[in-house]
Structure formats: C-alpha cells, structure tokens
Design a protein around this nucleic acid. Sequence first.
DNA 1: CATGTACAAAATTGATATATTTTGTACATG
DNA 2: CATGTACAAAATATATCAATTTTGTACATG
Lengths: 180, 180
Amino acid sequence: MSDRISADSFLATFARLGFRKASMEDLARAAGVSRQALYNRFGSKTALVDWTMKLLVDRSLAEALRSLDNPGATLAARLLAALDAWAGQHMTMLRASPHGVEVAVMVAPEPGEAVRSAERKLVAAMANAIRLSGPGALVSRAGSMAQALCWTAKGLVHAAPDHASFRRELELIVGALLAR
Amino acid sequence: MSDRISADSFLATFARLGFRKASMEDLARAAGVSRQALYNRFGSKTALVDWTMKLLVDRSLAEALRSLDNPGATLAARLLAALDAWAGQHMTMLRASPHGVEVAVMVAPEPGEAVRSAERKLVAAMANAIRLSGPGALVSRAGSMAQALCWTAKGLVHAAPDHASFRRELELIVGALLAR
DNA sequence: CATGTACAAAATTGATATATTTTGTACATG
DNA sequence: CATGTACAAAATATATCAATTTTGTACATG
C-alpha cells in the first residue's frame, strides 16, 4: 500500500534480463532496496513476479477504461487512447531486448487467463462506447468492430516500426472506421 | 525449371523442424528424392534454404499482385485477397510448430531485405488500386491507407486465433474503410 | 541426372563432473 | 521494517570427452 517499492523498476529489469536471469539482487538494486526487503515484502521471487505482472495488467486495463470514459474527447480519440494504453504502451518494452516479449504480456502470442479476461472487459467496454456514441450504421456491429480494433492494435504493435507510427496508423484506421 | 522438386515439401519440413534441425535426408525424404539429388540440384543446404525462401517470397508477392489485379472483383475483395495471399496464408505454418516463425518470413519481427522490398511493392500496388477505384475521399490518403492495411494484416496474423477469423476481421476492416 | 554405398571432416548431442550463482532462511543490528 | 552478513540447498553455468549425426564429396551403377 504505502509502496516505496515501484513495479516499474521490476518491469524494466525483467524486460532487460528476462524473468529467469533477473536475480533478486538485480531487482533489489533496481528498486533501490535490499534483497531482504524484497523477501520481507513478497516472500519469494515467484510471488514478486506474479504481483508485478498482475499489477501491469490491472494498471493497463484501468488506464484504458479511463481513457475510454474521458468525457471531453471524441469517440475516435477515446478508442485510440484506450488501445494505446492497452497495447501501444508496451512497444518500448517489447523492443527493449529479446526478453521484452515476456513482459509485454498484453501482446504476447499466448496470453494467460488474466490477460484474456482483461481484454474481454476492454473489448466489451469499447463495444459499448461505439454503441453509445458511434455512427448509427455501426451500432449493430459494435461488438465485431471492437474486437477487430483490439486485434488490429495488438497486431500493429508487432508490425509497426515504432510507437509513433503505431499511433499514426491506428489513428488512421479508427478515424476511417468511424467516419460516416 | 522442369521441377520434379517442389518447394512446398521443403517449407513443410522447415516449419516442422526448423532450418537447423531439418537435415538433407529429412528434406530429401519429404521431397521424394535422394539426398544426392538435392546436392546435384542445389550444391549445399544453405543454397537450398535460400532458394526455397526466395521462391516463397516471390510466389506470395506474385499471387498478391495477381489478386489485386483481378478485374472481376470489387476493390475490397481484391485488397482482402492480396493481403491474405501476402500474410494470411502463412498462419498455418506459423502455428505448425515453434519453428513456424522461421518460415513465415512475411510476418516475422525482423524481415530481411527481400521481404521488405516485396512488401514495398505490394503496398505501392495497393495504393495504386485504391487511387484508381477507391472512394474519392481516400485518393489523397491512398498511400497511408495501403500501408496501414498491410501492417494491420501482418498484425492480425499474430493476434487472430485462426485463419478464418483473420479473414473475417480483415474483411470487416477493409469493408468499413472503403465504405463511403 | 538419378540412385545407393562409402567416407572423412565438421557439427551436434549426451553424459558427467566441477565451479559459480541464486534462492530462501536465519540472525544480529538500527 | 529496513539493512548487512552468513549459510545450506537448489539451480545454473562451464568444461570436457565420447558418441552420434550431418554435411559435403567421391564413385559405381542404370
């Protein structure tokens, strides 16, 4: 709760070294605490990894849903922001090293149940947003549309050369999709 | 030229075992010829691999361009067919085994120069097709649109669970993008 | 040109023993 | 609760040598 320990230093370390090779000493150094502090807090390395990854998924989903609810923005902008929070944000980690994939779980080839569950929630929320403020012609296909957008975003993460083009292309697609 | 030897048996073998572990004997057996026939024809394993992969890229591009030129189909159908030929077709190999990625070069994370060059040609041809028969509003953005579609397709290969949903989602996106 | 056999050189694999690192716990200390 | 030191057990990494596979070439044959 009163966390002096941030998950981000763990994530950076995992992205650089991979879960396997990142030792508790590496993680402690990166977090600026002692190795024993980590054992006091988490009990084991496995627990630390689980905590960190759960937090990443939860945080990404929360931010995506928040972006989606932003009342001041257009539907296109909200969808773009949500997809960026969910998938785009992790491009840097994905590209950081060969181990980046381990950390970028939202775009990994075989996501775990936690990720799939979070993704279902995001897609449902996106479908809802489209139904509420999208063009009439799309209302009946809001579900498929949201799913397609989510997969497109996840895909663009792999296909686009960098985060900037990820946003640019996704913006183009979302915009064209909603322009009626 | 008068090829009794087909590249497909090689591709299947590579997808199953990977370039490294696929031996000349494996490749010969799969092709239904003797090991020495392969050495007569290709000289070395490296040359055989290169020939096979070049042929895959050339063939995929050729089929994509042919689909794009099909005079009997709508623009949306032609784009879908081209993207399927270029990227979608390789999903089965990609999923065949952990080594599938080696063979599915068109959707690999770091494509070689041959693939990048072929992809540029495809994107240019798609942009041209959009310019020629796309809705007027898209003409000025045909280039970005073609690029976005190509990346989307490559991405969907990773994100979609199977080839059928790949086609379904891509069809949805292409259709929505062109409907004006 | 194709096949089958044969073969040397190189590469890969497997087994095994020996460091070295890392995990998890304990304890003394502020 | 945090740090530093200490330590046993487990996991990893490193080195080595023998066994096996694979590559590439040669040659005899249809």
